[in-house]
Simulated scan of single mutants.
Amino acid sequence: MNKILMPYSKGALRLKNHLVMAPMTRSRAIDNLPNALMAEYYAQRTGAGLLITEGTAPTPEALGYPRIPGIFSQHQVEGWQKVTSAVHAGGSKIFVQLMHTGRIGHQDNLPQGAVLVGASDLKAAGQIFTDTAGLQDYSQPQALTTDGIANIIGGHVVAAQYAIQAGFDGIELHGANGYLLEQFLNPTVNNRTDEYGGSLQNRSRLLIEMAKAIADAIGPQKVGIRFSPYSTLGDLPPFADDEVFETYQHLAQELDALGIAYIHIAVNMPIPQRTFDAVRTAFTGTIILCNGLTPETAEAALHNGFADLVAFGRSFLANPDLAERIAQQAELNQPDYTTLYTPGAQGYTTYPTLLKSTLELT
């Protein structure tokens, strides 16, 4: 049997295999509430040992995109309980990804009274979809005050506690893809002059303080984090290779000291081998590798010394039975890109499985 399908155990993380479903925004949460359709979607994909949910807003001002779920109200907790129950019935673990989009958002996507915020007041170039007026330029963010930062940390702690109440096995902080935590890491977008700006240690401060506060509240083995070193998503200007290397080496060391469960690396841009090596040397917990993997390259990655687990995004989107297809070396469905973010079941829970295809042929 391939290693990818064998059980995995490190620390408190015990999974039925080495296969992870990556977080993917799907925009099916009407009124930002998890629902029965979402529970069906995640239940279909319990071939993965670990599922990581789509980015989920920990606070109202974090809702940068339309129809993304939140986890800041009791109604949302109740909606998520349907999802976690369905996933656990399939024998899998599930972490909720806490995603604060920061300056990547639009005022029309936020609840009344919420304000778009960021590490600074620098507006991102580009556009975002709104249900009110289609594509619009990103809104102007307000720079967070130090009190605002404290409130953001507190909001994430409450969201993490809600997540445990909802039945999640843990939470993943979204420190990638140009969203709030990565905005703080970037020396151009983060032009602050207080203790959260300037040196890489200061720019890393929010992320480390947040991880520690959540670990103190729910336990470090229920905390993971996603990074995308060298990424320029979300209008992030690139910065010097040496400083990127030192930033993620520092983060890996600090997070290892906290004893969190995992670091999840999304390879959105090429990452030098020395950065992979520095993260692996500094971090003794689980490392998940994601982006651009095939079943064959994922299997190879599990043997090369960096990744403990491998994650698939769009392959899982289009193949609810990805684990079975890997086991049978079967052909994979291709995603329908026109239905990635549309409301409703089409292109969400309607992808065929091998079993369904076999039954239709008999």
Rank of each mutant, 00 (worst) to 15 (best):
G126E: 11
Q74G: 13
A266H: 08
L258D: 12
D277N: 12
R192T: 03
D256F: 08
Y248M: 06
P229N: 07
D31E: 13
G170M: 05
L258P: 08
T353H: 09
P295V: 00
G49R: 01
A86E: 07
G170N: 07
A124Q: 11
G47R: 01
A298V: 10
G155Y: 03
S73G: 11
V279F: 00
Q253D: 10
D121H: 12
A217N: 09
Y196P: 00
A43T: 02
L135W: 09
H106D: 05
A323G: 05
P237G: 11
T46D: 04
H250D: 14
G259I: 04
G347C: 14
I271N: 02
I287S: 06
G313M: 08
D242P: 01
D321W: 01
I4P: 01
G113D: 10
G347L: 15
L309S: 04
Q249E: 09
A163Q: 02
L144M: 10
L309R: 02
A213T: 10
N268T: 08
S231A: 11
G148Y: 07
D194V: 09
A48Y: 01
L302G: 02
V83Q: 00
A150K: 12
Q107D: 14
A330N: 06
Y41D: 03
K93Y: 00
G224H: 01
Y337S: 06
